[in-house]
């Protein structure tokens, strides 16, 4: 039996669809369909300043905004040759 799970399924909260092939209660194959949350952030930042880009990348993954923000800030500051200083207690 083929079951369509998501993207409106509560556990996939709107961003993931899986097409499951079931044999009884066992999942035989799973075809994930993603991209529902992809809004062209990379393309948008091509038209913005570095500072405006921070606002975009924090929203790239709403469950871990600061990781994206940190990665973006470290990479962009490294590209113009300065070095961000990690906060106290950080091992980075």
């Amino acid at each position: 039996m083929i079951i369509n799970m998501g993207p409106q399924h509560p556990s996939t909260h709107g961003v993931l669809r899986m097409i499951l092939e079931l044999d009884g209660e066992n999942v035989v194959t799973c075809r994930p369909v993603l991209g529902y949350l992809h809004t062209g952030i990379e393309k948008n930042t091509e038209y913005r300043t570095w500072q405006q880009g921070v606002t975009f990348v924090t929203r790239a993954d709403y469950l871990s905004p600061f990781f994206n923000e940190l990665g973006y800030c470290l990479a962009s500051s490294a590209s113009w040759g300065s070095r961000l200083r990690p906060g106290p207690g950080s091992s980075a």
Partner: peptide, 16 residues
């Protein structure tokens, strides 16, 4: 095949 864009999308959007 495409992974993020819709299957029927025309073009490759991150090209400049």
């Amino acid at each position: 095949r495409r992974i993020e864009m819709p299957d029927d999308w025309v073009g490759h959007p991150l090209r400049k």
